[in-house]
Amino acid sequence: MTTEYWRWKEYNWKNPDIDWKDAKNITVGVDVGSVSSQAVIMTDGELYAYSNMRTGSDSPESAENALDWALKDTGMTLDNILYAVGTGYGRVNVPFADRAITEIACHGRGANFMYGPTVRTILDMGGQDCKVIQVDEKGKVQEFLMNDKCAAGTGRGMEVFADLLEIPIEDIGELSFQVDEEPEPVSSTCVIFAKTEATGLLRQGWPKNDVLAAYCSAMALRVVALIERVGVEEDFAITGGIAKNAGVVKRLTGYLNLEALQPKHDTQIAGALGGALFAQTLAVKEGKVPS
C-alpha cells in the first residue's frame, strides 16, 4: 500500500464531566465541508461531544457519519436531540437538520464561544476556501470575505504539498522551520503552479524543508492580502485545519505583526460549534425545550 501523506487523523471527544441525561436543551451542529465534516453536540449551552472526520463523496452520509461518531459511547441518540443545524458547503444536504445556516455566521458564533467575547477578527482556513470574518462581542458577523476561487491557503493545497514532498501533513509546520535561512516565498499563488515550481526547486537540489518554508510563506502572504482587504482588529483568532500548521500561522502573524489567540478546543470544530449554538437559541425560540 502506498503511504497517504496527506491523511490526518479522524477522532471524537466527549466531556467526561457532563451527564447529558440531566440536560434540558440538547442540540447538534453539523458542518459538512469539502474536505472534513464535524458534528458538535451541546447540552444546556455547554460543549458536550464532537467528532472530526473526512468528508466522503456523499454529503448526507458524511453528515450522518459525523453525528454517529460524536454520539458514539454516549448512550445518546438522534431522538434526544431537540434541534439540529447544518452548515458548511454541504449544509443543505444534512438529512436530520432543522435549519441550514451559512458557515460564515456559524464560524462567527463558534469562535465567540471558543475564544471568548473579545475576539473581533477570525481567519478561517478551511479545506477549500479561506474566510475573513469580523464579529461583535456577541459573535454576530459585521463583515466577511470569502475566497474560494483557488486552493492556495487552504487544506486541500496543503495536502497536495504533503503528497508531493512525501511528508506527513502534521509535520509540515515544524519541518518548515528547520532551515538554515528563510527562503523567498514561491512566487506562484496558484497551487497548481506552486506545485510545478516546487518540483523545479527540488530538482535544483533544494532541501525539502526549504521548499516547505517557501510554500508556507507564500500561503501566508496570500492570506495576508485577503485579511488586509477587510482589515484586522484585535483580538485575532485562526480557525480551520490550517490553524494547526505552525508553518503558516507563525509566518502569517509575523507579517501582520500580531498574535493569534490560543484556542481552547480543536480549531476545526468552530463551524459546527456555531451551528450547535444557533440550535440552542432556535430550540428555545421555537418552543422545543421543555420547561
Partner: peptide, 16 residues
C-alpha cells in the same frame, strides 16, 4: 453586516 463577494487573484481584488 458588510458582505464582500468576489475574489482576489494575481491580477487584483475583485469584490462587490
Amino acid at each position: 453586516m458588510k458582505a464582500n463577494y468576489g475574489y482576489h487573484d494575481g491580477s487584483g481584488d475583485f469584490f462587490i
